[in-house]
Design a protein around this nucleic acid. Structure first.
Lengths: 208, 208, 208, 208
DNA sequence: GATGAATGAGCGTTCATTCAT
DNA sequence: AATGAATGAACGCTCATTCAT
């Protein structure tokens, strides 16, 4: 099981590299995002947190949403690479194992990167208006990994798309509630995750 | 002028029937919630919509979040009753059918009540800080319906709790993404829902 | 020669009557307008000047431009009434005298009400976007007084409109430069005004 | 790289010919001035337009107003020369023709150079605070052309100064309203201009 | 039961300008 | 000659909330 680190300041997307303030902004906004949610994020708070004036943020991002977009880009890139690495480590012929790797890795990445996950999948569309469409298309490709595995496994394309989306949705539910701390704290998180992943894998392959 | 300032939570569905101010507030805020989302809700807008001054709202709710909480209560009540009715209509011995009824009803209710669902399950924890703990506990009981059915079906209590929560989480994922319109519009919604429900039911019972 | 007071706080347009804060806002903004021009006017400055918080202004005006519009309304009303009164005091058959009264009164009013005049005739169109169109039409009627007098004097309508607008423009030039203090301070203001008025009257009637 | 950092005010018309930075700044700011008016002019916009950093502008101008002042100088120079050329083309003995040439040329120049005209004659005094007094005096000399013609025509100096300023003011009114597009669009612009010019010439000579 | 008057905090953003390099 | 980094001040405006009446 790969260990997904929550502090990728070492080699994130290279987007943080070489530029001090930019990294500071992203780190601070990530914290704020996590602590107060998207609505709680403000240019002023970020600036205050890093000890700069609010204007300084505009030297690196044209507007507030661009900061969210940067998290999105970063998150999508990370998630995509993480999922592909997970796939690469599994026998290409073992559909069950591949799907399981995908599911488990997805969920664990979400749990380990809650702020990024929130920006990626819980953001209100209003903030996405200025997001470049070509990046948007790329974003969807990550989710296609679920369908792809099913297609490789012999599913009809149409069926695979539905089943893949369904699998994603089910996993997302777990991550979203986990991030929002909506589960009873007494529930064993590992068992819960395992149950969800099992269910998703079994459900997806049942369509065969 | 009828005096129904404190609508009992037992009949929340009728809470809008009267034209007392409290009901007006709830009705107006529900509309706003639906139209503009949680972020688009403001005391001023509510007040303006019903032709009262913003101050008037504070006669019936101590603060803004309390209005959200009222919707939460109402939504929980509605959902609980809806789920129970669905269960009542199904052969008590047919676990698969019962679970399926629960799952399908839950999902459909969420899709049909997006504003309420958002308040109930997608609200940032910050808005929940002042929510009365005893209500919070009661809220969880609705979700226990999933575990309950599994217990009836012979699952060990501990297993049922985990499996029930897992089932809920997976269904939640679908509803959340549906409400946020995150699915590719070309996907057939019915097939997607069916796939998720099937998967969840199969997954839950597999633990048997 | 009528004496046009610069402090009409007694009976302006009734718009200042009965409402304390609203009047304060208008008075303060008039001062600021005069001292710093339209660009120098800000909600914060007005608020600070009258010792209120900036938010308080929004209790009486929906937005900043509405304050400018109020000055405009007030100014247009005042000017219109002032001009009509001046006309009423002159022999209806004496075209020269009527035109002269109009011209002289216009110029003197502008000199006596520089802040209002600036808002009325020197405002950038950008601030007028939200101005009610019906008021806009009414505004033009004031300037039609010049043409009207010429029509009464027997000019063809078409000629009168051009000559009337020309007369207004010439007078406006004097007022605008006077307000902006563009004239050499050593020039005798009275003689200058007299010369302009004479020229305008003579010019307008020459078209006969 | 040519070193022409300080363009002499004697040849402002050619100030844009070189491609040194100063000229670039003036050219860009002129465009912006024309497109967005004085308020729409900002150091950042100028810098962005010419592909330099905002700081670079301060190597050639001590502050923003100095850029406006440069346009003012340039405009004054242009106008002065244009008027003198117009005078030179007219019989030196024909006062009426000389005055008419002056008036018509002035008005047409203003209409043809709205951005410059705005900077020269419609700028709020605030922007003029740092304008060198000696230039200010020189500026007035252009307007003295009106008086000069009248003096040549035999007017007493004192009378000529008043009549000259009055003539200028009236012409200015037409230009100002024309630039601000304050005239009813249905009015024939040519007839209007002609009427104003006739009136001004007749008015000025009447003082004889 | 309801309001009018008012506020303090905060928002995203733009601006002219400075200063070390 | 030119820049990159940064700032303080200001902007219009919205918000939840309070308080005296």
């Amino acid at each position: 099981m790969p260990l997904i680190s929550a502090q990728p300041s070492s080699t994130p997307l290279a987007s943080d590299a070489g530029n001090d303030l930019r990294s500071l902004i992203l780190a601070a906004s990530r914290d704020l995002l996590l602590a107060e949610g998207v609505d709680g994020l403000s240019m002023r708070k970020i600036a205050h947190k890093i000890g700069y004036s609010p204007t300084a943020l505009y030297l690196h991002f044209p507007h507030k949403d661009a900061i969210l977009h940067a998290h999105l880009d970063e998150g999508l890139g990370m998630l995509h690479r993480t999922l592909e690495e997970a796939l690469a480590a599994v026998d290409a012929a073992d559909t069950d194992a591949r799907l399981r790797a995908l599911a488990e890795t997805y969920v664990r990445w979400g749990e380990a990167n809650p702020a990024r996950y929130e920006v990626m999948f819980l953001l209100h569309p209003r903030h996405m208006e200025r997001y470049p469409p070509e990046k948007f298309r790329m974003a969807r490709r990550t989710l296609d990994l679920f369908s792809d595995v099913l297609v490789e496994a012999g599913f009809a394309a149409e069926v695979a798309r539905v089943a893949g989306s369904a699998a994603w949705a089910q996993l997302h539910g777990f991550v979203a509630l986990q991030i929002a701390r909506r589960f009873d704290v007494r529930l064993p998180a590992d068992a819960l995750r395992q149950t969800v992943v099992d269910s998703v894998v079994r459900g997806a392959l049942a369509a065969r």
